[in-house]
Amino acid sequence: MDYKDYIKWERMPTTWCPGCAIGTIFKQTAFALADLGLPAEELTVVSGIGCSGRAAGYFNVDSVHATHGRAIPVAEGIKRANPRLKVIVFSGDGDLVGIGGNHLLHAGRRDIDLAVICVNNGIYGMTGGQMAPTTPAGEKTLTSPHGSAYAPLNIQGIITSNRRHWFARASTFHVAHLQRVIREAVERPGFAFVEVMAFCIENFGRRLGFKSGHEMLTTLKTGYKLRPGTEGLLGDGELGVVKHDS
């Protein structure tokens, strides 16, 4: 299969701002699907609401643009009704770990067979750049003009608190690794969560003084390294996979 088979071309260009990380993650997902050679008839993508949540409508497969925070339960329903389908959830941090956090807890606990791709730009991008549960401590946003007073939610901790788990952290800069872990997540039977470190230039970066998306992309290059080996949890600034299958 060609990655071009997985895109709804008549909907291009996307609504994403110039240089937004989501486009690169969307493209790497299409590359991963092409590598796996999955026929469109065996695939479904579900998104919630947000800029990242737009993705469901751009994949050339049957898809659902669910209500805010509800991508995971809708995806679980699809999987249970038709277990033959590979069901992918592609959505934002605010959608999946903010308003949808409770669904994440329980789908993870029950190890439901879904691949979740979470675009973590640390912000509610679509609504103007409000602080999210993933906003780094001290970061200035629209609703935390003096810097966020809270530590961000530990997504890795939530997922890996389940006995059986599969968690990956990837970044928009490290594209080869990103593509590989998306592929592994889709292949894993069970709940697979990919946290993709991303950025929002227009509603987050500009407020912090960044001039362009690629300037923010560079911070991912310097801020994140691939972890050597597969032992234990990922440290801050480390990318890789943490899993336990029995």
Binding site: M1, K4, D5, Y6, I7, K8, W9, E10, M12, P39, A40, E41, N60
Partner: peptide, 11 residues
């Protein structure tokens, strides 16, 4: 044809 489902190819 499989995969295309009636959508246009790229501009």
């Amino acid at each position: 044809p499989p995969g295309h489902r009636g959508t246009e190819m790229p501009k």
